[in-house]
Every structure is written in structure tokens, then in C-alpha cells.
């Protein structure tokens, strides 16, 4: 496995780089969509129930199914993969953003309004900081889901580390197959642990700020 990587460094690094691009772009898109949308849903509760029911269905769709459904719609390559991965990561963050914001104690919000906070101030100084741990847990889940599902992008020509696995299988090149599998497993574990540490650090900062 290490032998294969040493012999083919450019193929390996290319696949890794592509995997990171797929993950990075999809995760950014999830953040850009889910955070404002989650906030918006808390302001329109009637609409929120329908949206959440829809998102719960989206969450249930298997990752491979979501990726391959892009084939007739958008064809093969990077873009359809990113669209599918964005849809795959979206539910985790959207649900956590919404839940985190709705769980903020109504008394605290009321007290802030009583002290003359404007709507924008209540949102940026009270609601978002208090909801941040739950929101961040959602970001972590989405990141791990996306980095993991990005392995399957290889099936629709999206590249990434999964391509080492599929190409290794097709050519009976087992060192390549194992190299891809170990790399993607390591990457997923790294993302999980890194985000868990960040989450802990942030929660501690918030607690210090509060006291």
C-alpha cells in the first residue's frame, strides 16, 4: 500500500486533492444554504414544519442513490457530485440550526428585548451564540457525512479517493485499492476527531465568555 503510494505519488495526491475539493465546496455550500435557511425557518414556524418533513425525507435517501440520480439530470463529473454531496450534508446542519435556535430559552430572549435589544441584536448577541454548540455539532455531522459520501463520487466521475478504490478493483490492483481505502478511512477519522476537538474548544470558550 505505502509502496503503491510511493510509486504513484502524483495519482495519489491528485485523488486526495480532488477529494478535499469535493468536500470543501460541498461543505461551504451547505453552510451558505443551511445557516440562513435555518434562521429563516425559525421566523416562519408554519412553513418550518413542512420544510422539516421534507428535509427528513431527504436525510433518509441513501448517499449512492442521491449521487447517481444526478446522472440523468447533470451528467458526470465534479459539479453533479458537489450538488449531490451538498444535498446529502444539508439536512444535518439545517435541522441542528433550526433546533438550536428554537431551543434558546424564550425568557432570555424576552429579557433581552426588555433591555431594549433590537431584533438584529437579539439574533446576533443572544440567539446565535446560545445556539452555537448545537449548530456546530450539525457542521461536524455534515462534514463527516460529506467526506465519507465523497468516496462514492467516483461512481459518477467526480474523482476523489474513491477512484483509487474503483480503479484498483477494475484492474485487480489491490495495493491501489487498499491505499485508497486506508486514505479515505484515515481522512474521515481525522475530520471527525478534528471537528470534535474544535467543538469542545468552542464550547469551553462560550462557557468562559458566559461566566
Amino acid at each position: 500500500m505505502t509502496g503503491w503510494i510511493a510509486a504513484n505519488p502524483s495519482i495519489f495526491l491528485g485523488a486526495l486533492e480532488n477529494h478535499l475539493w469535493l468536500t470543501g465546496v460541498a461543505l461551504s455550500a451547505v453552510l451558505l444554504i443551511a445557516l440562513p435557511l435555518g434562521l429563516l425557518l425559525t421566523r416562519h414556524r408554519g412553513f418550518a414544519n413542512a420544510a422539516i418533513a421534507l428535509v427528513n425525507i431527504l436525510r433518509t435517501i441513501p448517499s449512492l442513490a442521491l449521487l447517481v440520480i444526478m446522472l440523468p439530470l447533470l451528467g458526470t463529473g465534479f459539479l453533479p457530485s458537489v450538488v449531490a454531496l451538498t444535498l446529502y450534508g444539508l439536512p444535518a446542519l439545517l435541522l441542528n440550526t433550526y433546533t438550536g435556535l428554537t431551543e434558546v430559552d424564550a425568557d432570555i430572549v424576552e429579557a433581552a428585548r426588555g433591555q431594549g435589544f433590537s431584533d438584529a441584536q437579539v439574533m446576533t448577541r443572544i440567539e446565535i451564540p446560545l445556539a452555537l454548540p448545537v449548530i456546530f455539532a450539525g457542521i461536524r455531522t455534515a462534514a463527516v457525512q460529506i467526506v465519507s459520501a465523497a468516496t462514492l463520487a467516483a461512481f459518477i466521475g467526480g474523482g476523489g479517493l474513491g477512484e483509487l478504490i474503483t480503479a484498483g478493483m477494475a484492474n485487480f490492483n489491490f495495493p491501489q485499492l487498499i491505499a485508497g481505502a486506508v486514505a479515505v478511512a484515515g481522512l474521515a477519522l481525522f475530520v471527525e476527531v478534528a471537528f470534535a476537538l474544535l467543538e469542545r474548544l468552542m464550547t469551553r470558550q462560550l462557557r468562559l465568555g458566559a461566566s
Binding site: T151, L152, I178, A185, L189
Partner: peptide, 17 residues
């Protein structure tokens, strides 16, 4: 938890040998 984090395709590939 570690097993759960490893992508499905990677687990299948690692089991082949």
C-alpha cells in the same frame, strides 16, 4: 464509533483481501 466513521466503500475494499 471509529468503525461507524469509516466510509462504506472503504470498509468493503479493506475486507476484500
Amino acid at each position: 464509533g471509529a468503525l461507524y466513521t469509516v466510509p462504506a466503500l472503504a470498509i468493503f475494499a479493506l475486507l476484500i483481501p
